[in-house]
């Protein structure tokens, strides 16, 4: 699994941008992303309060054959585990100013065989050292959202290309 920190120079950044016109569409993009996951991936969710991060993860869960209604905001518990086709670790760093890999036992979840979906990913100090796919959701209208998928390393870029090739 290629998600351990490496010292090699950063690969070029790959970006894939889509527009979502409703929470329903945002959820569908979560489902689509799930269809290209195999387990062992790290997803970094970025976006303001109310942008639709948890909504996206509900779709992701559905795509992983989990029950969408079991996906609750993990703000209070910080980590929620769901076990389906592959495990989904739903993590929320909202209540932390910043977090390191060694806080909350994050390492255990981020380097697992499951899918780790981390909300407020930008608060993770060591983010730059990891191989991930980031999902940045921003407001572009009352119900419209711009969703930007971005990856810089091998595993994340592979995911991004799969997603783009299949659904662009």
């Amino acid at each position: 699994m290629v998600r351990t920190p490496t010292s090699e120079t950063q690969d070029s950044v790959a970006v894939f941008v889509i527009e979502s016109n409703s929470p329903h569409e945002t959820k569908n993009w979560g489902r689509r992303l799930a269809s290209v996951l195999e387990g062992g991936e790290l997803l970094g969710l970025i976006g303001d309060l109310g942008a639709g991060k948890t909504c996206f993860i509900k779709g992701l869960a559905r795509g992983l054959s989990l029950r969408e209604e079991d996906i609750l905001s993990p703000t209070f518990t910080m980590i929620q585990e769901h076990h389906g086709r592959v495990a989904l670790y739903h993590i929320d760093l909202y209540r932390l100013d910043e977090a390191g890999l060694d806080d909350l036992g994050l390492r255990e979840y981020l380097f697992s065989e499951g899918v780790a979906a981390v909300e407020w990913f930008e608060r993770l100090r060591e983010a730059d050292e990891l191989d991930y796919l980031s999902v940045n959701i921003s407001y572009s209208g009352a119900n419209r959202r711009r969703i930007e998928f971005r990856a810089a390393r091998e595993r994340g870029t592979l995911l991004l290309n799969r997603l783009r090739n299949r659904f662009a």
């Binding site: 309060l49 109310g50 948890t54 209604e69 996906i71 609750l72 905001s73 703000t75 209070f76």
Partner: peptide, 17 residues
């Protein structure tokens, strides 16, 4: 039960907004 956020969480997050 709630399907997403807790009510107190909504208060905290809206206060932050």
């Amino acid at each position: 039960r709630t399907r997403d956020d807790a009510a107190g969480e909504a208060f905290d997050k809206v206060a932050k907004l």
